[in-house]
Computed example of a mutant assay.
Amino acid sequence: MPVGGEVPDAVRWAFDPARLTQARHLAGVTKKALAEAIGVTAAAVGQYEVGASRPRPDLIPLLARELDVPPEFFVAGRPHGRLDTSTAHFRSLRSTRAYQRAKAIAYTEQAWELVNALEKRVDLPPVDLPGVDTDDPQAAARTVRAHWGLGGGPVTHLVRRLEAHGVVVLTPPRDPDADSVDAFSTTRLTRPIVVLTRNRADDVHRHRFTAAHELGHLVLHHESAVPGDPAREREADAFAAEFLTPRDSILPALPKRVDLKHLADLRRTWGVSVHSLVYRCRELGLISDSAAGRAYQRLHALADTPGFAPEPVDTFPGELPSLLAKAYELACAHGLDLAELATELSWHPARVRELLGVRAGRPVLTLVE
């Protein structure tokens, strides 16, 4: 890129409207708010985003400042994994607003760009999701377990296993602006991507069930996404239950009447919540709906009690993603550095670290004699 005062003019002539939209969605800013911040009309911002006109050179630094990106971010020509909200599986549309979904989609697009940059330098695990020829979610779950050689026992290190089979898993930093976004996934890019948030509950058991739920979407609904569709969400839940607690294995271990102590022991063994085990008992016909209802009431009263309380995700091995951070470390060992990667992506270095899940380097203490 040119330097000095030539940069804004050069950016203007190479301006990519889609990058402005992406940056605005990432910032969670409306067209109106952005327009007011840079001194133009909302209609003008809309024209920039559809490519009907380009922002003046003097507006480029203002856009970059307000959206927290380098001016070069708006330049066309870089790989751009384009998605829209119709191409991702969101758990519920009623609990998320349109701008929150747009922000999540923009985050996923950037994650793909990072993956794409790393794959130029490092061979990531090949995508290994078996094809299924059934609409039965339980049968699909058994197919995946067999294909991955999991046997009939508990699935340990679930997120690490997803990564080992070529799925990119991300856990974004907590974002109060997207606290209703639970999880989502897509197969519309060169790699399947699953995003697991901890905004709503930092609980390893919910986290694992959600990861298995999104795996169900990837396997069952890879050809199309219908965000928030209740039938597909139920199918993904059924897949997750069978994947984590296979009927033939869990049924002999489940009590024939509600026994919360026994279920708490099973929680530790199988890595699923007591709540989901109660549901499994009801689903498999071991207890009645009314008995399950009473159990849920008791669980609510025990919600903060050890053995029943949520347990943080980062205290369990293999349940936080590490694929991208390890790929970055390997690339750095062969000559890559953060500044080079940030320049290639046209991001601030802090943004690269955020998506990698890598903290900034510690300051170095120097002792002077």
Rank of each mutant, 00 (worst) to 15 (best):
A35S: 13
P79R: 10
S86Q: 12
R101Y: 05
A52F: 05
P71H: 07
A37M: 06
P79A: 08
V69H: 05
F90K: 01
E109K: 01
H80M: 12
A43Q: 15
S86A: 14
A33H: 10
F73N: 02
G81K: 01
I60P: 02
G39W: 14
F74Q: 05
R94D: 09
R82D: 10
D58A: 08
K31Q: 13
R65W: 07
V75N: 07
I60K: 02
R54P: 01
R56Q: 12
F90L: 10
G77E: 12
I38F: 12
A44L: 10
L62A: 13
G77L: 13
I60A: 03
E109F: 05
R94P: 00
S53N: 12
L93Y: 01
P70Q: 11
T96L: 01
V75M: 14
L34N: 10
V29P: 01
I38L: 11
G51N: 09
F73R: 02
A44H: 13
L63E: 02
S92R: 08
E109N: 02
L26V: 00
F74G: 04
A43S: 15
I38Q: 10
R54D: 05
T96W: 00
G81A: 15
A102Y: 04
H89Q: 14
Q100G: 00
G81L: 08
R78Q: 07
S92V: 03
L93K: 02
D68R: 15
T85R: 10
T30V: 01
T85M: 02
T96E: 04
A88S: 08
R94M: 03
P61V: 00
A35Y: 13
